[in-house]
Amino acid sequence: MGKQKIIPILAMAILLVGIISTLYVYAIQINKDTITVNGQEYTYDTLLLLGGEKTIETVDGEVAGVSLENLVKSIGIDCTSCNKYTIKAADGYQKTIEWDVLKTGVLSKESRVYFPDTPKALWVRDVVEIEVN
C-alpha cells in the first residue's frame, strides 16, 4: 500500500481516535460540589473546619487554602507517612504523591491543590477526590 493511501487512512484513524476520546472524556467528566477524601464526601467548608486554613508561598505568589497535612491527620489516618495519596480531578487527571509532598500543600476554594516546591503539573485543578493508598 503506497503513501498515497496510507497517509489519508492514518489521518482518518487519528481523527477518529481524537473524536472518540473527546466524547469519552465528556461522558466521564465528574460534576459535583463535594470532594471525596478517603472514601467520605465533604464540602469545602467542612474540609476547612477539619483542616484549618494555611497560607503557602508558591511560584505564583501566596496561596491560602485547607491545610492538607491537618486535613489528613484529622480524618483518622494512623500512619500518614505510610501511605501514598492520589489527587484526582474531574477530567480524569490525577497525580500520586508521597506524604512528604502532600503535607506541604493546600486545597484552595477553587478546588485546586498547590504545593510550594513542586512543578505546576502537580497542582491538580478541579479536585474531586483525594484517595489514600
Binding site: G18, S21, G92, Y93
Partner: peptide, 11 residues
C-alpha cells in the same frame, strides 16, 4: 488513566 484526555486534546 489520563490517556483519553491526552488523546482528545490532540484533536
Amino acid at each position: 488513566i489520563f490517556m483519553p484526555r491526552i488523546l482528545a486534546s490532540g484533536l
